[in-house]
């Protein structure tokens, strides 16, 4: 495929806009407790930020930004965060995913649960971002190269 050169405007705008998209993604993740949002939605927005760079730039650039071979391991790591939190609760004597058994001292039980929810939302967001990027890489990969 021929080498594409993006127009400077697109490059500039995408560079300008990407951090804000990411910021918004983090907002959605962390605001999931108080309004519509959460890990999946936030993760999808984060992925959108990454994908914007992928669409605009060449592999040399975006591979620095987010290596395409890391998609699957990152996804696995994200799910592993979720899994690990449940597993820690199980090891510490509760049922799987019983956040009240998490080793967070000095919080009320409701707060411990709230924190547990936050932690797994982060895991979800991480996994969803990585997997969506990986899906993009694999489905559209041949066009990009």
């Amino acid at each position: 495929m021929q080498h594409r050169i993006a127009s400077p405007i697109i490059l500039l705008v995408s560079r300008f806009i990407t951090p804000y998209i990411m910021l918004y993604g983090f907002y959605v993740i962390f605001h999931g407790h108080y309004g519509p949002g959460g890990g999946f939605q936030g993760g999808a927005i984060l992925a959108a930020a990454v994908l914007l760079i992928r669409i605009v730039n060449d592999p040399e650039v975006y591979e620095i930004h987010f290596k395409s071979s890391f998609g699957i391991p990152f996804g696995a790591a994200g799910v592993l965060i979720f899994f690990g939190i449940g597993f820690i609760a199980m090891v510490l004597g509760g049922n799987f995913l019983d956040y009240s058994y998490l080793p967070l001292v000095g919080l009320t039980q409701a707060d411990v649960r709230s924190t547990g929810i936050l932690l797994i939302e982060i895991g979800v967001a991480f996994a969803v971002m990585a997997i969506l990027v990986s899906l993009y890489d694999n489905l559209l990969g041949e066009e990009n190269v």
Partner: peptide
């Protein structure tokens, strides 16, 4: 859970294994 968003609580606490399953589904797809 000290969290106002009920959907989040149901998703991530009461029915958290569903959500884990959902994560696994998307991981599978990847």
């Amino acid at each position: 859970a000290n969290t106002p968003n009920m959907v989040t609580v149901v998703l991530a606490d009461y029915r958290s294994i569903d959500t884990l399953g959902e994560e696994v589904v998307i991981f599978t797809a990847g």
